[in-house]
Deep mutational scan, measured.
Amino acid sequence: MEVRTIKVFTTVDNINLHTQVVDMSMTYGQQFGPTYLDGADVTKIKPHNSHEGKTFYVLPNDDTLRVEAFEYYHTTDPSFLGRYMSALNHTKKWKYPQVNGLTSIKWADNNCYLATALLTLQQIELKFNPPALQDAYYRARAGEAANFCALILAYCNKTVGELGDVRETMSYLFQHANLDSCKRVLNVVCKTCGQQQTTLKGVEAVMYMGTLSYEQFKKGVQIPCTCGKQATKYLVQQESPFVMMSAPPAQYELKHGTFTCASEYTGNYQCGHYKHITSKETLYCIDGALLTKSSEYKGPITDVFYKENSYTTTIK
């Protein structure tokens, strides 16, 4: 009895394709271990004539594949690729409408935090270190965002349907971005203890939790000093293409032309909904596939993004 075979390709990165001759009487799992086709788990399936010449994702289970996976995804987590594939199996079914010149995501599976993050990423200057993220990001900007969303979920250790947080998501993504040249110098002034300067680099240099107003941050924000008295913390120097200011959701007025974009969060910790506000020729609110415009805006804002380049204080 002759062994019926077909020729397929296996890959971990969709760049390096490895030619395989597979036995049609055995499952993919018996031949390769966990195997995925377009995100779908085909591990328990036997090869079919229609699979001839198709590319299958496999887990990096030998040295060659491990090197290829690390170079593309910059992670050695053995569960990463499987999590990416199972997320992709959902995100490829989502709709990605162009809204006001940006790629958004039609609401499904509690994905409003991903839509808000995706919209924000198209408006701030950011370059990702893992080629996987950078490639998928370019495709997302062009309207094909399924891979990018699935990668975000995998890097953030999230599953489809789980509630997510924009600030946490951005923080994970910033860790995989090139923020080497970003720098922030802060000064804390206390009447009792004097003053202390701190220099922050990388992710810490672009994120701040405690106030939404970048102007206020430049002037000074009140913080408790270690001595128990009130101290003032203010920005001395900022070198970065953008800054992200966050605070627990509270009524906040966004003035046209003073910011790049913002995240609105309605609801409580267990259950809520994100919308995205962007400042173009007027203010726009993007909620999944829905767009509304207004000249002014007041609502429960939790993150505001500002364009920056270089700032030095005039406070002496």
Rank of each mutant, 00 (worst) to 15 (best):
T10L: 15
L186K: 01
D41V: 09
T27I: 12
A117R: 03
Q195S: 15
L88F: 10
L212E: 01
K316L: 15
Y208L: 06
S86C: 15
E71S: 08
G164F: 02
T192S: 14
S246M: 00
K316M: 15
T302K: 01
K255R: 12
D41P: 13
R83Q: 08
E281H: 05
Q20E: 10
T192I: 11
F242D: 00
R83M: 08
R141G: 07
Y269I: 15
Q195M: 15
Q20K: 14
E125V: 05
P300C: 15
V203A: 12
L37S: 12
A262D: 02
S181A: 15
Y36R: 05
K233W: 08
F217Y: 06
Y252W: 14
F70V: 11
G228L: 02
Q134P: 04
E144K: 11
A132E: 01
Y252H: 12
Q251L: 12
Y234M: 10
N157S: 07
M1I: 02
I152D: 04
I223T: 13
S104C: 12
Q175T: 08
S263E: 00
Q196R: 14
T199H: 11
A154F: 02
K280S: 13
C149Y: 05
C225N: 00
N49T: 13
I277N: 00
P130Q: 03
S279R: 02
N309P: 15
A140W: 02
T11D: 05
T76A: 15
Y297I: 07
P131G: 06
Q216L: 07
R66D: 08
S171G: 09
Y208F: 12
T5S: 13
L186V: 15
A87K: 06
G29Y: 10
H18A: 07
T260C: 13
L186S: 09
H74C: 07
G272K: 00
A247I: 02
Q134K: 12
V12T: 07
N16Y: 09
W107F: 05
A146V: 05
G29V: 06
M245C: 13
Y36W: 15
D303E: 02
V67F: 15
V188K: 11
T199F: 06
V203I: 11
I15Q: 11
A145H: 04
V3I: 13
L114A: 05
M244V: 01
M245Q: 00
L102I: 08
F32R: 07
T116W: 03
P300Q: 11
E239K: 11
N89G: 12
M207L: 07
E215H: 07
M24C: 15
